[in-house]
Design a protein around this nucleic acid. Structure first.
Lengths: 110, 110
DNA sequence: TTTTTTGGAAACCGTATGGTTTCATTTACA
DNA sequence: TGTAAATGAAACCATACGGTTTCCAAAAAA
């Protein structure tokens, strides 16, 4: 649970964290409310939330004894942009067969 | 390096694998050619490629003694679609402040 | 002022991850 | 036919990951 390689791609690689994102996108919740949606323990959820904050997808804000978790998903644009770079692969404009035939098998000699 | 949780999100969480995707999107390469782009060992690259094949993003095809690696990035649509679900967060239509103000602080009592 | 509620923090655990080196095998080439 | 190229496979390693339980502290409520 260190600070290495804490980028958005790694943050969203875990299904639990994607679920947390889904929850917080609709409304802010405190930690216990988030944890209530899962069968795992509260500390486990807390660790996921920490990871999400470490890459800026979630912002926490202490109010009294509660920790309010708020989604800030601008960072997902990076993911969207990256994936969309390869849109041609699923856009029908150029299907897999076409790509295969287009490809010069001698490219390997570069 | 087992077969657990080998989904697209996990596959693209590693920067090396995203780089491999970038390479193979332009042209198919055999394993050694891919490995030439990295400082790490060939077996390390081979493992990354195996992970990419396990979720369908890369297809390998043995020809003689060579293993040709070909990208098939239709699986990235899933990533794009998921991220785009949250477009509103970076679309200016609704900026963070607005979201914050829109939010009913009493939602927490659900 | 007790007692809940809320959650931080630490210690621990099993397994996955990302890498290495070494060795064997198959194919191509001189 | 010997040799080089291309790769698979296995063993190994350190650390990250995802989870747990336990305990403590602070704020809120009774």
């Amino acid at each position: 649970m260190n600070q290495t390689r804490r980028d958005v791609f790694q943050a969203i690689s875990d299904p639990t964290r994607r679920e947390i994102i889904g929850l917080l996108a609709r409304r802010s919740l405190n930690l216990n409310k988030v944890a209530d949606h899962f069968t795992m323990s509260r500390p486990a959820v807390a660790k996921h939330i920490r990871i999400l904050t470490e890459c800026g997808l979630v912002v926490v804000q202490t109010r009294g004894r509660e920790t309010f978790c708020q989604a800030d998903l601008k960072g997902l644009k990076q993911v969207s942009d990256w994936a969309n770079t390869y849109q041609e692969f699923w856009n029908d404009k150029l299907d897999a067969l076409e790509r295969f035939l287009d490809e010069d098998p001698c490219d390997e000699n570069l």
